[in-house]
Design a protein around this nucleic acid. Structure first.
Lengths: 341, 341
DNA sequence: CTTAAATTTTAACGCGCGTAAAGTTTTAGT
DNA sequence: ACTAAAACTTTACGCGCGTTAAAATTTAAG
């Protein structure tokens, strides 16, 4: 196995001219089967691969795709990212994964670095209200971008996410139908714009059902939702802020903290006879199944959100980076009944 | 704001020659302050940035660093990855994050893709026993690599991780000292080599303390540890396999499943009077604080493991990719006492 | 076996930038 | 102000590969 330096050398060793070899690497089917066989045979013997930098420098369009999520330590995003990565690879692209880690300046830096990578397209789940809108706007003007999970009005070529109204309406309706109407438990200054949509949906659904909405806002900032939910729950329980025996958390991570607080206080949660409280939530976090009690929640349609996102991106790329109009695709939730409500 | 095509053009606009501009981008301090000022002034007016592909093609050494973890949906790795990323950026490198998602072929593909990226160095947390040892060996021969978290004997220029013996000895000693000696709860075919070291440590410590080790092996494969721990715990509890009232789980994610099972079965866990069982674990998973009850566990020294890893990598890079001898750095655990044991 | 069609080869240019050599200007030290 | 050192400019080449146009070859069709 001699070391191959470049395509010239490899071409010589394989007995095929360099332009043809180049063509082969661009699309193996674009050369005659016999020459393809000869190249692939040489490929086995010498194990050469084109220099990706030289390739990307000369191609008008790279095969790179950027995937940016706001917080990778959240298994929800890790899970979606996995799906997105695999879809991109399957389509012959090279995905690069980035996490903003909940910080605006990091999101901006990532977008900056991404531009110099000249990606064919980017799948961006922005931080949301923390995002630097103008920076993202500028980025979207230069790079074909699909927004997902968290919508920034008018930005990106398309948005794909979940229908927050569907989430909340299902949980609220379920809880009222089988018990008492829930209070809504959320952060005072939520990091994610989905949170606002969920609160609005809660208020609307409650009013439609003829109940008075009761929103409980707890303090805390950042992405340590469990901690914030835990602290908030302790306060709520202590001060008896709940008007009914049921609570709907804005998201599962808050609910995880809430349930931990209930456990500590000896408050049994669930729909059984001896339970004092019912807790439901939104997202279907990977760990929601293992809370105590297991968490009743409205599940994201992971597969469809991720699938539609890459689909939209590929359309966008094939369309030369522009789509006729900005579409917003929302997928409804699936109510997952477990023990907590 | 005219669009700048290349460095030639930018150099002309800034009134500085291209080679000097090139030098500036390589190291802003390498040019005279006055010319630096002129360049940066032009930079503000025209917003140009060197084509990263052209740069990397010509530099003998890129500024890329690859970070590979076995499973990003595990918040433990997400957390470490965040620290590693930030350290690399602070040192002027461009980190790229990859997750093997628990699959050997993906790990191999990532390593393959990484090679064509000609990184200055790679921080690799391998899958462990699932890893394709020969593939990784080949990779390490071509790319300066530091292994972390999970050791593959002899591979990579150095290894940085946690001292599994320290983890287990602390938890076992604590549990025996304050109660009964624990059984050890683990997967029959653990995905991670740390698991084996932990079992061995358990047996050794137990024997040293004069107790008979009792290892409970549960079935299941893959990385859905919570699910596996949950199922396994139900079986263990049903068949009364525990000989004492205390259990040490191989890792926190198994423990999360175990605690969920206990809750479902109405078995109170903790060290209070009315508790039937004590459960401890290893890792200090980000969610360990929010289990019910909160989980007593041996915590990784995140900061030191991550810090020492990048330190070792930078040494390696500055040393031209070779170190005198392969070192293995192990950091001890810190026992975190919570409510479960 | 002839001929048109399809492929491959040859030759050459360009991409954007690193880098080296030689010459010119600026800076610093006394 | 004078000189050596430092920094800059000019010129030119190379990196590894995409791409193109014309020439040569192979293949498929009749």
């Amino acid at each position: 196995m001699t070391k191959i330096k470049n395509m010239e050398e490899f071409a010589a060793l394989s007995g095929i001219s360099r332009p043809t070899v180049s063509k082969y690497f661009h699309d193996p089917d674009s050369v005659r089967p016999t020459t393809r066989a000869r190249i692939e045979e040489a490929l086995e013997r010498f194990d050469y691969r084109p220099n990706i930098y030289a390739v990307n420098q000369n191609r008008k369009l790279t095969k790179n795709i950027g995937i940016v999520v706001p917080y990778l330590a959240d298994p929800f995003f890790a899970e979606i990212a996995r799906y997105l990565e695999q879809s991109c690879i399957a389509a012959g692209y090279r995905p690069s994964l980035f996490s903003s880690h909940g910080e605006q300046n990091l999101e901006n830096e990532i977008l900056d670095g991404l531009q110099s990578m000249k990606p064919a397209g980017v799948l961006l789940a922005p931080l949301g209200r923390i995002s630097d809108r103008s920076a993202i706007e500028k980025f979207c003007a230069n790079v074909p971008t699909i927004l997902f999970d968290s919508n920034l009005e008018g930005l990106g070529a398309a948005f794909v996410g979940s229908d927050n109204f569907s989430f909340v309406s299902q949980t609220v309706e379920y809880m009222t139908r089988t018990g008492e109407p829930p209070s809504f438990f959320e952060m005072r200054t939520p990091a994610n714009p989905n949170a606002n949509k969920r609160r609005k949906a809660y208020v609307e659904v409650m009013e439609r059902l003829g109940f008075e909405p009761h929103v409980i806002k707890i303090d805390g900032k950042g992405w340590a939702f469990e901690e914030i939910g835990h602290r908030g729950a302790l306060k709520v329980l202590e001060q008896r802020e709940l008007r009914t025996n049921s609570v709907l958390c804005s998201n599962d991570r808050l609910a995880i903290g809430f349930l931990a607080a209930c456990y500590e206080q000896g408050i049994r949660v669930g729909r059984k006879e001896d339970c004092m409280l019912r807790v439901a939530s939104n997202d279907d976090h990977p760990f929601a199944k293992f809370t105590c009690p297991s968490l009743t929640t409205a599940a994201h349609d992971y597969d469809n959100v991720a699938g539609r996102s890459v689909e939209a991106l590929f359309e966008l790329i094939e369309n030369g980076g522009k789509l006729d109009s900005r579409t917003e695709t929302l997928f409804p939730a699936r109510l997952v009944l477990r023990d907590s409500a």
